[in-house]
Design a protein around this nucleic acid. Structure first.
Length: 228
DNA sequence: GCGACAG
DNA sequence: ATCTTGTCGC
């Protein structure tokens, strides 16, 4: 339940996808500050069939305080675009928007599995999803796409700036003691500091946000069920 | 020209 | 992303 049918149309070429990013980029609000005490937070993730011709996109909405799942939706379909680093959003956006439309509650924040500002043209999946839905959004990547950084301290909460081309595009954040850090960046209507705080609030036990973990489980299960 | 390259 | 064995640790 974001705003009704998005009727998303995938670009037919790399050139067209680049033009779409160029057009949407200025619409992103990279300042925020965004909600510091959201009631609900959504996690989004996609699972692919080994054949690569089918995918399941899932959105799970968690109570931000208890981290209990209060709503969820899945969409099974075909990848909408080839896998091109930097144009990743075009591949997963249709399925994710479809799943978002099936929710019965409108989440206060979207936590995306991928980057936001930390993107070669400063418009990753989290920015794209935020702009299209109008919802505050942040990106939490497991591996880097762009930028340089120093290793953050070993304890949970330690972070270092992620820099690219003279810009601070995100933060490398340690969410658990002694565990590999994650890459946090702003997507839409959120400040970087608030994004980091929200991620820490979502990682009381594991490296990845509970939102992402819940969505990951859901889309994997949906993919398995759909093939049986 | 040669690598790197979110999921 | 997905394919994969064993292995270390709580």
């Amino acid at each position: 339940m974001t705003d009704g049918g998005h009727r998303y149309v995938a670009p037919g070429s790399v050139a067209e996808a680049l033009r779409v990013q160029e057009k949407l980029r200025p619409l992103a609000d990279l300042a925020g500050p965004g909600p510091t005490a959201p009631a609900t937070v959504a996690g989004l993730d996609v699972a692919y069939a080994e054949s690569g011709d089918r995918l399941a996109a899932a959105v799970t909405v968690l109570d931000a305080r208890t981290l209990a799942v209060v709503d969820s939706a899945v969409s099974v379909g075909r990848p909408a675009f080839g896998y091109v680093p930097g144009l990743f959003a075009f591949r997963e956006l249709p399925g994710l928007l479809d799943a978002l439309d099936r929710l019965t509650v409108r989440p206060d924040l979207l936590v995306c599995d991928g980057h936001g500002l930390a993107h070669p043209r400063r418009f990753g999946l989290a920015c794209h999803l935020g702009v299209v839905t109008g919802l505050p959004a942040i990106g939490v990547g497991k591996t880097p796409l762009v930028g340089e950084w120093d290793e953050p301290g070993p304890r949970r909460g330690a972070w270092t700036p992620l820099r690219d081309g003279g810009d601070v595009v995100g933060r490398v954040l340690r969410t658990r003691d002694g565990v590999k850090p994650v890459f946090v960046s702003v997507g839409h209507r959120m400040s970087l500091g608030n994004a980091v705080d929200r991620v820490l609030a979502l990682t009381p036990r594991y490296r990845l946000p509970e939102t992402t973990r819940a969505a990951d489980r859901l889309c994997r299960d949906a993919l398995a069920s759909a093939s049986t």
